[in-house]
Every structure is written in structure tokens, then in C-alpha cells.
């Protein structure tokens, strides 16, 4: 399951800015971010609302492009890629987990997990096997045929994680994955992420504003007003 060793850094941001709007109404969400993330890291991004952490996550996830600055993913300059090329990059290297789960309604857990593999063009039998394995990895083997409406929030988030890891991505991005969950469910999700990082070597980057959740990560990056304020190894847990 371990991907072949690659020359670090996996992710490298240099002087990235993001400005929304034009002229008078222009608002800078990011004002010059330098950030490097290596293979196998588990990074928590923290900061108050509006500090730019979600914007940064979208840029790292290739969903958005920086206004200025450079983003290299495995040495590839993402800002030079077309919309389709960025989609291919997401398809093959990135996994996403969202605060609102974002599963397809009225679609079984198994089919939700299969979805990214459809776009990879895998044959149905292989898809099914891989999806079963991913659901097993998040402990939901007995819920394969339940639809999101029939699952609890924590279970839905675990299905979302299974969908993100079924493609064996290089990086897993989680934007406030525990934002909608109670403390006990949140802890389960964080432990699941930590074990994926530990046992499968998946690079994980989460956005959160709960210090309790951030401490599961090995490194914490703090955003304030569109700039990196602090960047340090998390204390306590490792």
C-alpha cells in the first residue's frame, strides 16, 4: 500500500496570494503563503474564521488556483495546468473529505465509495472489491447497502473517508471533517485518520478549529489574516 518513495517535498507553496473581487471590492484571502508538506505528514491547519485556511486548502486540493505565487505538487507547477489537467491530478493523487460529508443521496455506501473508481475507468468487479475493502478499512462492512439517509453523521463521514482513500491517494484533504459531529464521533474520525496516516502512510492535511482535534496531527500550522502565523510540531500526541 505504500507508494514508492518520492523526492520531498510533496507539496510546496511559494508566496501564494489569493484575491477575491476586483478594485475597491478586492479582498485578499491569502497574502503570501510559503508552505512545504512532505510525504507521510499529518498536518492540521488551524486559525480563526476568515484567516484563509479553507482557501489555502482549496488551492492545495487543486480546486482553486492562486492569484499569484507558485504551487508545486510533486514538482509540477499546478498554476500552469488547465482545468482538465487539474481534474486529472485530483482523480489520481488527491482525496477529499468535507465537513458536510457530501455523499450522493439515495445512493448506497458502496456505490458512493465506488464513484471515484468509475472515473478511473476500473472494471465493475475490481471497483466493487476495492470499495468493499475501503469500507472495511473504516469499519463499515456491515453498512455497504445503506444510503446516507440511513446512516448516522459519523458513519456518513466514515463513508466519505472510504471514498477518499479508495483510490489510494497521495494526499488526503479534510476540511473540518469533525465540524458536524459530537466529541465521541469526532474522536473516532480523528483516530481513523491517524491510523490511516500511521499504517498506510497516507499524507493527511486537515483544517479544524478545535485544538482537541488538531492534537492528533503531527504538525500544526496556524493561519492568521491570510498569513502563516505559527508552524510547529504538535505537542503531546504523535
Amino acid at each position: 500500500m505504500n507508494p514508492a518513495p518520492l523526492p520531498p517535498p510533496l507539496i510546496c507553496l511559494k508566496g501564494v496570494t489569493k484575491v477575491y473581487g476586483h478594485g475597491q471590492a478586492a479582498m485578499a484571502a491569502l497574502r503570501g503563503i510559503d508552505l512545504e508538506i512532505g510525504q507521510g505528514e499529518f498536518v492540521a491547519v488551524m486559525g480563526p474564521s476568515g484567516s484563509g485556511k479553507s482557501t489555502c486548502m482549496n488551492i492545495l486540493g487543486c480546486l482553486d488556483t492562486p492569484t499569484r505565487g507558485g504551487y508545486q505538487f510533486r514538482g509540477v507547477a499546478v498554476e500552469e495546468l488547465s482545468r482538465n489537467q487539474r481534474a486529472m491530478l485530483r482523480r489520481h493523487y488527491l482525496g477529499f473529505v468535507f465537513q458536510g460529508y457530501n455523499l450522493l443521496n439515495r445512493t448506497s455506501a458502496l456505490e458512493n465509495v465506488e464513484l471515484p473508481l468509475i472515473y478511473r475507468g476500473l472494471p465493475a468487479a475490481q471497483r466493487r472489491a476495492a470499495a468493499r475493502q475501503a469500507l472495511a478499512a473504516v469499519g463499515l462492512s456491515d453498512r455497504e447497502h445503506h444510503t446516507p439517509g440511513e446512516l448516522s453523521g459519523g458513519q456518513q463521514q466514515r463513508v466519505a473517508i472510504a471514498r477518499a482513500i479508495v483510490t489510494e491517494p497521495a494526499v488526503l484533504f479534510a476540511d473540518e471533517p469533525t465540524g458536524n459531529l459530537d466529541t465521541a464521533r469526532s474522536k473516532e474520525i480523528m483516530e481513523l485518520l491517524a491510523s490511516l496516516n500511521r499504517e498506510h502512510g497516507i499524507t493527511i492535511m486537515i483544517v479544524t478549529h478545535e485544538p482537541d482535534m488538531a492534537k492528533y496531527a503531527k504538525r500544526t500550522v496556524c493561519f492568521v489574516d491570510g498569513l502563516v502565523a505559527t508552524d510547529e510540531p504538535a505537542g503531546g500526541e504523535s
Binding site: G61, A87, M88, L103, L104, L115, P116, Y119
Partner: peptide, 9 residues
């Protein structure tokens, strides 16, 4: 969701 997980236009 489809676009985020890598569906092309």
C-alpha cells in the same frame, strides 16, 4: 462532488 473527485468537464 463529481468534479472534486476528478470528473472531467
Amino acid at each position: 462532488i463529481r468534479l472534486a473527485i476528478g470528473a472531467l468537464e
